[in-house]
Simulated scan of single mutants.
Amino acid sequence: MSDAPPPIRVLVCDDQALVRTGYVTIFSAQPDMEVVGEAENGHAAVQATRQLRPDVVVMDIRMPLLDGIEATRRLAGPDAVAPPKVLVVTTFNVDAYVYDALRAGASGFLLKDSPPAELVGAVRTVARGEALLAPAVTRHLIGHFAERLRPADTSRRAGEDVVSLLTVRELEALRLIAEGLSNAEIAAAMFIAPETVKTYVSRILTKLGLRDRVQAVVLAYRTGLVSDTP
């Protein structure tokens, strides 16, 4: 009797057949993954997800009928029941709505030109319940949309609430998370052990009622806790 965990069930959603075929080939070659379905638009992805119950949906953004943002909101938004993890795979220079997808409930994003090993690793990361932000573009991406992230009537109060709930060290960790640093990089920057970083992250999410690191990044920028300047 095998003690191996069940494979990660993956649904691939992209309007380009060639891209879907490439993803399916990559994921099917992994011993810990199983591709349970494909979808060519967001509407089909929503239907397939509700029928097939994948663990992770690999989601494109620009698609006909229903785009990846709205599909993500329906699958993983605040009103979703038993939501899957959604990994948005996007072309950064084209898709100006990556932030909207993250806010809609995505567990992270990756660039379409990422190597296959990074794509596979990203699926494993979100399947574990961790959020994935591509560190090289996190500051650029969210900083670029910083003004639209901060409604003037709510940001100051929200920022005050965050400051009052978190300790000084937790606030420092939150700022580093928002800059796209990994746990190892945060540990080095704060001169603490990686295990301590994990504890800080868990406390931050619990205190602020957040689901994952993506929501923590969004909140940090919306409340002005981090600067939008490089």
Rank of each mutant, 00 (worst) to 15 (best):
E70S: 10
Y200K: 05
S227I: 04
D228I: 02
A187N: 01
L110F: 08
T125I: 11
A152S: 15
V214W: 04
D15Y: 11
R157H: 12
T154G: 02
G209L: 00
V162L: 06
A152W: 13
A80H: 05
L171E: 15
A152T: 15
V226F: 00
P194R: 00
Q47Y: 08
T229D: 08
L119G: 06
D32S: 05
R124Y: 03
D15L: 08
V89P: 11
V58P: 06
A45W: 12
N41I: 00
F145T: 13
E195T: 14
Q51H: 10
Q215V: 11
Y99D: 15
V81N: 11
T229W: 11
R62I: 12
S202Q: 14
R128G: 09
L165T: 08
Q16E: 14
R124F: 01
D32T: 10
V46G: 06
P230Y: 07
D14A: 10
T91S: 12
S107V: 04
R213A: 07
P194V: 01
A76C: 10
A158Q: 14
E160H: 01
T229L: 14
D212W: 12
I192N: 05
T223R: 00
E70M: 10
P84D: 07
P151Q: 10
K85D: 11
G37M: 10
G159Y: 09
V89D: 09
